[in-house]
Amino acid sequence: MLTFDHVYFYYKKEKPIIEDISFTIEKGEFVCIVGPNGCGKSTIAKLIDGLLMPKKGTIRIGNHHTKDPNDLMKIRQRVGFVFQNPEDQFITTSVLDEVIFGLENICVPREDMYNRALSALKVVNMEDYLDAMPHELSGGQKQRVAVAAIIAMQPEIIIFDEATSMLDPEGRNQILAIMHQLHSEGMTIIHITHHMEEVLQADRILLVAQGKIHFDGKPAPFFQTIPVENFQLEQPFAVRLHRLSGQAVALTADWKGAIRSQWSTN
């Protein structure tokens, strides 16, 4: 449903940011994009949503092209985008207004707005804060409102562009739980992150460095074959445990479950 076809992007021609990237993401996938700072991950995210335009190549969402101005509004309705900084994506002055803003943009009839906004806010547990102003909310709460504002627009894909990186562990876990819940209901999720613990649970990992894709596949082979330190990344705890135990503990995000079940069978 999402296709990158030989995409190039640069601000200055001699300093390419994205070089000849091609991939396809299918409906319902949970894809993590990882890589060192400044490798072009966020550029890819912005290209998907038509916030940046490729210098060469095409990007399609279904049969909508980001280059076609007539398709752009459709694409932004189909692709939701949660940014890194909770502060800088809160546009209006209250929680309810924030969710309504997107609904007005996509011309939802007035009568439906309140219910759609309310049910989106319920998904992220923010329905008790309808009138709260942004400076009264914590970072995690603001980020949950940002997610609700996207959910209300009923997109097919949601991009989380380092959306957990500025949150405390509690806020981060809440956003992650919402992501996985949406995914289980059929939403396509693209999650850009530095936290390797979050990567283990994905269906698929794209490793981007120096504007190219260096790996595209499942988490287990990713950690088994890629020297992640070379890409400014580190192995998550479960992988360290797996390695250091001489593979005595299976490689899975749920290492506790693995130890427990194997302990009881022995």
């Binding site: 912005k46 949503d49 916030l51 509004m73 932004r76 309705q77 939701g80 985008f81 940014f83 800088d88 994506q89 546009i91 803003f101 997107g102 943009n105 996509i106 504002a149 627009m153």
Partner: peptide, 8 residues
Amino acid sequence: YAIDARAY
């Protein structure tokens, strides 16, 4: 970016 991404 945030305003654009929300289809304004």
